[in-house]
Amino acid sequence: MANEKRKNLTPVQQEYHLFEKERETKRPVLKNCLRAFLIGGLICAIGQAISYFYMYFFDFTEQTAGNPTVATMVFLSMILTGFGVYDRIAQFAGAGTAVPVTGFGNAVISAAIEHRTEGFVLGVGANMFKLAGSVILFGTFTAFVVALVKTIAVKWGGLG
């Protein structure tokens, strides 16, 4: 697509295009990855600590501690998002804050807060899943297909 577009440009424009590409700041991939690794890992380690907390003080097992842990992480991300701290961490960490479930919470919560001025129904209600909606949609649909295929394979194919 990019090549087709370039054919229609005048030579001067093409030259500029090359010049622009040369001058474009390269993304520091390695540095970004290191930051994502550190912050993302830290968030997961905090999650592990929270799940141990639930197992130690309440009647949760390793299996069942996952749900309250996720809820707690989302709660923490609400507080950090509300005070504007999460965005500042996200600028530093990139995917390190986006990939954990806190990033999902941040996407929902920041959208909810941002659109609050438009009213609760049309603003908050309608825009809450603006960013997270695609995650839910494709996650759910893929899960449906995968589970369907696997169920059929196990039931009638004698697999598994």
Partner: peptide
């Protein structure tokens, strides 16, 4: 858990 927490806390946050 994840989704309902996001919805509830999102609204409380708003």
């Amino acid at each position: 858990a994840g989704i309902s927490a996001a919805i509830v806390f999102g609204f409380i946050g708003a």
